[in-house]
Design a protein around this nucleic acid. Sequence first.
DNA 1: GTCTATACACGGATAGAC
DNA 2: GTCTATCCGTGTATAGAC
Lengths: 213, 213
Amino acid sequence: MAEATTRERILGAADRLFGSHGFRGTSLRALTREAGVNLAAVHYHFGSKHELLVATLSRHIDAINAARIAQLDALEAAHPNGDIPPLDLLNALVRPAFAFRHASPENAEVVQRLSALLHSEPLEIVHPLMEGLFSRVMQRFAAALERALPDLEPEEVYLRIQITIGAMVSALAGRHPPDLADAPGLDEEERIDHLVHFLAAGFSAKPLNGADS
Amino acid sequence: MAEATTRERILGAADRLFGSHGFRGTSLRALTREAGVNLAAVHYHFGSKHELLVATLSRHIDAINAARIAQLDALEAAHPNGDIPPLDLLNALVRPAFAFRHASPENAEVVQRLSALLHSEPLEIVHPLMEGLFSRVMQRFAAALERALPDLEPEEVYLRIQITIGAMVSALAGRHPPDLADAPGLDEEERIDHLVHFLAAGFSAKPLNGADS
DNA sequence: GTCTATACACGGATAGAC
DNA sequence: GTCTATCCGTGTATAGAC
């Protein structure tokens, strides 16, 4: 386990420490000590602490997105005429993120901190970054959802996808509002079922048209 | 405008600089220079940079929550028997946040950075903080929604509120996913209408019951 | 009670030797 | 590619003036 390229050792330590102590709570000195490499190696291989985090997140997010695309491909193959049930599309979009989190518990927190870091940076920096990570996946799903819901204007489909993403990240991040009562009640699996159920109902709502042509 | 107590000058500068440059991007030295006060004044009045942000956010969030409570009071007064339409409850919950943002454009970004900062801190710190800021409001709305949707288990109501909050913050923060196409299309007002419409449909979905007693 | 000046320890970053 | 030494900005703490 001690044998690995310097770059990989850094990425491994980043997974562990960013996940457990957060981004701000992890100093490069502690990280490089954990990795058994020199302090300056981070800057040589990644350029900055920030870009190291981006690289860390990209690894995981790319894996999640690959699973999404795979499921979408399977759905489109199973429905050659294009009428994929919206519920199936939502499952393909939402569940890979939770599956990943469940598969690799220590890396789960890394993903959780994504939105935090991104939102704490200026929008001019964040936006192109998200673009690079997500745009291809989202455009695939947008196209599929437009076909599945032909009554909706494209703008409305886009907006509903944004709402879906927001609800999903907040569910991924854990409880957003304070614990309403103790209410454990639902385990993770049930929570996902309910989430997708809720989103499917919202997505299937009839169009809300003002004065449109 | 230059006349104000030191504490107020600091809070004003915090609104401007946290809003425009973010939390991490604002040093206490820049902030105190903008405010025209001494560096140590922040520590004296607030204890730390972190607590200064908490104070800044609390000011705004408390105002938003007061508006929510006022609207909920009005709804409950208008429906003494307790059957408030869920759509009305969602409007009372969601719209004050956007109204505030629209009223005070430069402070809008301050609120946007809330979740960012909170999520970048350890959960043990974040959780009690959110508890103090939101729990009273959320419990009021949870109770009202439980009465309005008696078919749902309380746990399911709680979960749907969490989903709602997540969708709302992401909508408040701007586009979460990359700009799907250029798609301006919808202005802010329409986006809010669509958001509430979507959430109302999700909230009114029939219960999703597994094997329950 | 308030505010100022100053000191400290730590962070990320960089230059340059090897 | 790797490492050492160093720089400068940062949040924080404190001693003491008003």
